[in-house]
Amino acid sequence: MTDTSPRTALIIGASRNLGLGLAREFAQRGWKVVGTVRGASRTGLHDLADTSEGQVAVEEVDITVVESVEQLRERFAEASFDLLFVNAGITDPDKPASEVETEVFTRVMVTNALAPLRVIETLAPLVKPEGTMGVMSSRQGSISMNERGGHEVYRASKSALNQLMRSYDARRDDKRTLLLIHPGWVQTELGGEGAPLTVEQSVPGIVSTLEAHAGDGGLQFRSYADETVAW
């Protein structure tokens, strides 16, 4: 018998910008989506859920708080997702790393690198054995492609994220696909108004890339255009 039930996605960080765009795009493609927000304030994800006829649901989680992530796992203990995608990221002042306050450095590294890894490891049991786990990375995390510097701590955090995911892949023993995704240079708070891509231009490519590599297994670092990104 063929399983005709809709595919399911858990998107961590879907209140606005790329995360909200991903929730909307997956829903438009027939997926059932659970998106998360960090606080209790109303967001664009709530508006999307209200008009989705049950196709989109909202949950709260703070990925920098271990207990919050564990509580989310417990709430979905009986669920099984085709996709877990962690969309999280904050930036730093654009100045040399040596001039960045220690507190800022720590906050960026925890939010962009350590917390996504913890989310993947904590919530992996909710993902089907043949499912996909993805994390929003960035080409700025590529060491070999860094030729002009800038936003040094943000770059370092994405490089750390990539390394942590590679280490996780090396020690795990399952067939889930693990994808690091570069969304392109997008017009968000991180990308700025001068970025060449809009959220609407980036998101369909991200979703198509995630769909295209479902079932591949292993770890890949790919762009929204489904191109391999150099480490």
Rank of each mutant, 00 (worst) to 15 (best):
S167G: 09
G192N: 13
A160W: 13
A160R: 09
I181D: 05
Q163L: 14
M165A: 11
A170F: 06
R176E: 10
L197G: 01
T177G: 04
L197E: 12
L164N: 03
L180G: 03
G194F: 12
V186K: 04
S159C: 10
W185K: 05
E193F: 03
W185C: 07
G192S: 10
G194M: 12
R166E: 15
Y168M: 09
L190W: 08
S167V: 08
K175R: 12
S159K: 00
V186F: 09
L164E: 04
Y168T: 00
M165C: 15
Q163M: 15
G191P: 00
Q163F: 06
R176M: 05
E189Q: 10
S159H: 01
D174N: 14
L161D: 06
A170H: 03
H182Q: 07
T177N: 08
N162H: 15
L179Y: 04
D173G: 00
R171T: 14
G191I: 13
L190E: 11
L190K: 09
A160M: 13
D173S: 15
P196Y: 13
D174T: 02
E189H: 04
D173P: 00
P196R: 09
G192F: 11
D169N: 15
L178F: 08
N162V: 05
R166Y: 07
A195P: 01
A195V: 11
G184Q: 07
G192W: 10
W185F: 13
S167M: 14
Y168N: 03
G184H: 06
K175M: 07
W185H: 15
M165G: 00
T177L: 10
W185Y: 10
L161C: 11
T177I: 13
L164R: 05
D173T: 13
Q163K: 03
G194D: 15
D173Q: 15
P183Q: 07
L180T: 02
T177P: 01
L197V: 07
S159Q: 10
L197S: 05
P196D: 12
A170K: 04
Y168A: 14
G192E: 14
T188V: 07
R172E: 11
P196L: 11
W185L: 15
A195K: 03
L197T: 02
L190A: 09
K175N: 14
M165V: 14
A160V: 11
V186E: 12
Q187M: 11
G192P: 07
Q187I: 09
L178M: 10
Q187A: 12
A170C: 10
D174S: 08
R171K: 05
G192Y: 14
D174P: 01
V186Q: 08
N162D: 15
R166K: 13
G192H: 13
A160Y: 12
R176H: 08
G192V: 14
G191M: 10
H182D: 07
P196C: 12
Y168E: 10
Q187N: 05
Q187L: 12
G192A: 10
K175H: 08
T177F: 12
I181A: 05
L161I: 01
L180S: 12
G191Q: 08
E193V: 09
G194C: 06
Q163H: 10
L190P: 00
